[in-house]
Structure formats: structure tokens, C-alpha cells
Amino acid sequence: MTSPQSSPRTVVAFDLDGTLVDTAPDLLDALDLVLSDHSVAPVDRGQARNMIGGGARLLIVRALTGAGIVLPDAEVEAMTKRFIASYADNIAVGSRPFPGLIAALDRLEAKGAVLAVCTNKLEHLARLLLDALDLTARFPVITGADTYPRSKPDPLPLLSTISAAGGAVERAIMVGDSMTDVLTARATGVPVVAVSFGYTETPPGELGADRLIHHFDELEQAVDALLETSRA
């Protein structure tokens, strides 16, 4: 019989942009910078927030398309490199954890959960951001789009993140803000909590998550409920 000490710990894996941290201010400032090289006006902040999450290149392409501009791949790659460099230099000027996050992490840790980050942000940028916000120590495992050969919504990153955290699929939960996160959780076989305050073009209530929360004050209860359901 498996002893309590050898039982896998609960792992709560978080997306980063739009879930843990409101990174839109700094991401969109970097976007405006590279767009200005092609005389494109600054993007509308309300609309552009929901374009975040697919990576720097896709964000740039979508902004260019919205402005009616098509560029050669080589130029887009150059813009992407400049975007990443500028963003890295200004990664936490306006980015801040969402309200209630720190207290929510405290409550989960107090119950013995291992916290992890599973993001499609480049790993070095994820670590740079978390370092700047003094959050790195909260997450023993941090994985990004380039940590593994495939990125979300492929199940590999989440499966590997859970394993690296010493957990098992049966005792893991994903927390995210987008369809990518929901699809990742479904492919991995873990329950998923969606936050309503992130970056998504699909209305949060239509993402198909197991639980939808509107503030981090609600996270502990959502996690407890999903863990209880998984034991049933």
C-alpha cells in the first residue's frame, strides 16, 4: 500500500500572461515600438489585450494584418527579435500580479500544494519577469514555450511540468485564461480553472473550463472542489 508520505503532492500549474500577471502594458508597449518602424499607429489597448498569448511573432503579424500590412518573413523575424529585446529590457515597467494572487498562493501552499508555471512565453522571459516581480521562489518549476520540443496546447509541457514538480495527473490542476490552456488541460487529462480577467478572444464563460473565477479570492475553493471531484 502506498504510504501518505509517498503519495504525489497536489500540483497547481499556472499560465503566466493574463493569468498570474497582467503583462499587457509592457507587451503592448514593445509591440508599439516595432510597429512604429512601419508607421503603424499604437494599437488599441482594449482590443489588443486579447491578441496576447500566441507568442511575439503572432502578435506582430496580427497587428500588421489589422493595419493592412503584409511583410516578408525575414522582416517579421527581424521585428520579432527587436520586440523580444525591447520587452526583455522593460519587462516589469507596468506588469503586475493580478489582485489577490499572493494571498491565493499562500493559501494553496499552506495546504501543501506545489505551484508551477506552464506558459507559452519563452522560458528565459518568464523567469526574467517572475524575478523582477519577486515571484520566482513561489514556483519550484517554471517551463516555457521553448523548454520542450512542443508547446501548449500539446500535452507535453503540462505533463512534464507536473512530473518535474513531483506530482501526478490525478492530483494536478491547470489554471489559465485562454482556450489554449483549456485545450492543454483536456489533452493532459487534468481539470482546469479559467480566470475571467485574462486575455482571450473567446468569452471566458465559453472556454469550457471546469471552473470560472473572477478574482483570485475564489481560487482556493475552486481547487478544493475539483480535487474533491477527482477523488470521487
Rank of each mutant, 00 (worst) to 15 (best):
P8T: 11
V11A: 06
V11C: 02
D15E: 09
D15T: 07
L16G: 01
D17E: 09
V21L: 05
T23L: 01
A24M: 03
P25D: 10
L33P: 00
V34S: 12
S36C: 08
D37S: 14
S39Y: 12
A41S: 15
Q47N: 08
M51L: 15
G54T: 05
A56G: 09
L58W: 05
L58S: 14
V61W: 04
A63V: 07
A67N: 04
G68F: 02
G68H: 03
L71K: 11
P72S: 10
A74E: 15
A78K: 15
I84L: 14
Y87G: 00
N90M: 01
N90Q: 06
I91P: 09
V93S: 09
R96Q: 13
P97Y: 04
L105C: 12
L105W: 09
L105Y: 13
R107Y: 07
E109M: 11
V114N: 03
V114K: 11
V114W: 03
V117R: 04
C118Y: 01
C118G: 10
C118A: 12
T119N: 04
K121M: 08
L122E: 13
H124D: 14
A126W: 09
L128Q: 12
L129W: 00
L130F: 08
A145H: 08
A145I: 10
P149C: 02
R150A: 14
P153I: 12
D154L: 13
L158F: 00
L159P: 03
T161K: 06
G166M: 03
G167V: 02
A168P: 00
A168M: 10
A168E: 11
E170R: 15
R171Y: 11
V175T: 08
V175H: 05
M179E: 15
M179G: 15
D181A: 05
V182F: 01
L183K: 14
T184V: 07
R186P: 01
R186H: 09
T188P: 06
V193D: 08
V193P: 02
A194N: 06
V195H: 00
V195Y: 00
S196V: 11
G198E: 02
G198T: 04
Y199Q: 03
Y199I: 05
Y199D: 00
P204H: 04
L212K: 02
I213C: 01
H214F: 12
F216P: 04
F216A: 02
F216C: 02
D217C: 07
E218T: 04
L219H: 10
L219E: 02
Q221S: 15
A222G: 05
D224N: 11
A225N: 13
A225I: 06
L227D: 11
E228M: 13
E228H: 13
S230V: 13
